[in-house]
Structure formats: structure tokens, C-alpha cells
Simulated assay, not measured.
Amino acid sequence: MIKTAITKKLALAAFGFAITGSAYCATYVYISNIEDADITAYELTAGASPHLTSVGRFPAGKFVMPMAVTPDNKNLYASVRSKPFSLYMYQIDQANGQLKWTGAIPLPDSMVSVSTDKTGKWLLATSFGGHNNSVNQIQANGYVNPVPAEAFPSGGKNPHAIVFDQSNKFVYVPQLGTDEIKIHTFNASQAKPLSETASSVALQKQQGPRHIVISADNKFAYVITEMTGEVIVFSRDIKTGALTQIQAVSSLPSDSKLVPGRPRPPTGSPEATAFDDSNMIFCAEIKLTPNGKFLYTSERTKSTLSGFEVDTQTGKVKYLFTTPTEEMPRGFNVDPSGQFLVATGQKSDKVSLYSINQSSGEIALIERVPGGKGANWVTFVKTK
């Protein structure tokens, strides 16, 4: 019954957006929308007049949030964080970017982050509220085995991301609630590839490490702290995966009046009703350009994006600017060419497309196009 209903919705959603013709190299953007319970898709065209063209809207579950794509760009997975917690699976049409729903499997909890490894054989997920990690095998056809190969406690509190390094040998899990980053070893050839034991790197109390990105050369890691709004720069030991902090830089402008945030109480609780975060730092996302020259972060209270120049030799960053963007920018991303940035707002029904100046790192708004409600996660796919 569920599969039939969703299949019908997908057919209706895709009607009128089909693009005929053979497959060609294209860049697609997928954005998950919490309130609309769907995924909006666009084709990003470059050239003289860059533009986001709607490909369609594809049903998902209520509170659909993080997404991940297989390395071959043929399958997309989305974590639905409302009960029953589940992973929605889609095939990506290489010719037109449309999503074909292929089923849903249960997840052990409300998973706040999902990632696929570089072999395309494994999907990892972590839960903010349940404080646990899970590992599922991806079959050759892209379908994810519903029985986890592994499921175990995260070893910290409130993990918020689960990210592979470039060698596929290490996995980093920032623990927002315990101000640390767990470092797991990973071996894709084993039946249980993710080590349950992990080393840990401590941050300062109440920084709240949220998301992490690894440089393309695998030498550096960059973390955005949710509650203090800092970019923490680490050098990486490529052999052991160990992190050594080398810099901490504020992502806020010097005249910012925001104060450090603190952990938010559960939604719907009496504490949440009285919780005033109107003047608290509330950072969210962090991304690098593919060439590693520029880094960007988002802050939700003032709805801004900040940019940094990166010294690719030392890994250190230099603050460049802060600019307004869509309201409550939980999610944004940089396209695979490094020429464009797409930003959404959880309290906005628009999507912003920016150009990235290849010399200065400055971003310039190109256009705003209609989006969904509760937009929060931006994923790029480049077909070949």
C-alpha cells in the first residue's frame, strides 16, 4: 500500500518535467524539505546565464533531512527523521535528473547524517538524539540491505555528522553534546567495516562541534562549531587519522552582537517554549570548494553566509566576509566545479544561486528560484 501510494505520487510529481533525449553531462541539485515532505530537484546550467531549472518534486517522508549519493551518482538516499524512522531510496535518471523511488527501509533511530563510502558498498548513519551509529550494506543495484551490518552507541552525545576521509580508511563523527570528535577506522572489505572503538579529540566546552569537512588532499579537517560560531582547523595524520588543532577563527563579523549559544531543549517541551535563542549563535553548515582555496559557513540566527580564504599549504583560513542569505540557512553546498554555491533557508520558500569569484572567493547572487518549505539539505550530482 505504501509503495503503491508513493509510486503514484512520484508519477504525478514528475509529470510535465520529463526531458527527452540521450544522457549527457549535467549538474543536478537536490534539496530535502522538512515541511513539504519531499525533495525538490533542479538542473544547474552554467555558461553566460547560469540558472536553476526545475526538474520536479519527488515525495519523501515527513521530516526528510540528510541525503547521500553513491560515488557513481546513480543512487540517492534520504533519511526521514519522523516515525517510522526510515531511509528512502531513489535511482537518479542520468538523462534528466528525475528521481525514481525504489523503496524504503527502517533506520534504527532519527538519523541526522548519512554518508556512503568511496567504494559505494556501505551506508553509514548517525543519530543526534539516540547517540548511535549504524552501518548498512549497499547492494549492486543500489538497494540498501534493511538489516544493519552494525549498530552501536556513538560513544559520545549528540553526534551530528558522519564523514569519510579521502582514503576511505577513517570516519569522523563530531559529538556536539560532549564537545569532541570521534575517529573510527574503516575497512570496506570487512563484514563489519566500522570500528566500534574510536579515538577522540576534545574541543573546548560548549563549542558544540557540528559538521566537518576534509580537504581534497586529505591533509586538513575543518569543523564548524554550532554554539560559538568558530571554524576549527586541524592538521591530519594521513596514516593514523589523528587530528591536531592548528587554528580557531570566528565565522562572525567583528561587529556581531550574538552571544554563544547553548544546547537547545527538546522540541515541544516546556523548556523549549521558554527558550529564547534570538540573540544566540546558531551555526550550521561548512563547505570547501573542490580546489580547497575557499571555505564557507552558515549562521541561522542572523541568516548569513561567511567566506574564508584557505592557505592550501598550511591549511589555515582567513576570514573574508559575511553576507545575508535565505532565512535560517541550515543547508547550502558548493557545486562540483567550484563555480557556484546554492543556499536554502529552513524558514524560506526560495533557493539562492550564487557565483563564486575564483580569485577572491566572494559570492554574488545570480537568482532566487521557488523552493520548498523547511528546506535543509543541499546535494549536488554531476552525471557523466
Rank of each mutant, 00 (worst) to 15 (best):
G103E: 05
G229C: 07
F220M: 04
K74W: 01
F308D: 00
N218T: 10
P50T: 07
V29Y: 05
K318M: 09
V342H: 11
A198P: 15
P253T: 08
K382L: 11
L87K: 02
V351S: 12
F234P: 03
P290W: 00
S115I: 06
A48Y: 14
V147L: 12
T40Y: 12
I183Y: 03
T322E: 10
L243S: 09
N75W: 06
T116F: 08
Q190T: 13
T267G: 03
A364F: 12
D109F: 01
W377H: 12
T344V: 08
S278T: 15
Y77Q: 00
F294V: 03
Q346V: 08
L12I: 13
N132T: 12
G130D: 05
S154G: 14
L12E: 15
A37P: 08
D349V: 09
Q245G: 04
A78F: 07
G371L: 10
P263K: 04
Q339K: 13
S134P: 07
S22V: 13
G338N: 04
M67R: 09
N33S: 14
T45V: 15
T301S: 00
S303K: 02
E43F: 10
S306A: 01
V310N: 01
Y90E: 09
N376C: 15
V29N: 08
G345C: 12
T383S: 15
H51C: 10
Q190I: 06
L52N: 11
I162R: 01
T53V: 05
V369H: 10
A202P: 11
T102N: 12
G155I: 07
S337V: 05
G292I: 00
F128K: 04
A364T: 15
V249E: 03
D36H: 08
S167P: 07
Q204G: 15
P209H: 04
M227D: 13
F170T: 02
Q139Y: 07
N333R: 10
T267R: 07
N187C: 11
V173F: 00
T301H: 03
A23R: 14
Q166D: 06
K239N: 14
W122T: 09
P324Y: 06
R210Y: 06
H131Y: 11
K121S: 13
G208A: 02
T225I: 01
I2K: 14
N141M: 04
L123K: 02
G307M: 00
K287D: 00
F63H: 14
C283N: 02
Q206C: 05
P59Y: 07
Q346G: 11
V369E: 09
G372S: 08
I92N: 05
S189Q: 10
S337C: 01
P209I: 03
R264D: 07
K302V: 05
Q207V: 07
S278G: 11
K318L: 01
L87P: 09
E35P: 10
G372L: 01
N75L: 04
A68I: 12
N141F: 02
S200M: 14
T244D: 10
S215F: 05
M65V: 12
P71F: 01
Q175H: 13
Y319A: 11
I138P: 15
T45G: 13
P260R: 01
N133E: 12
F170I: 02
A149G: 13
V342S: 06
K257A: 11
A274C: 13
I34D: 09
S355N: 07
L99S: 13
N145H: 13
T323F: 01
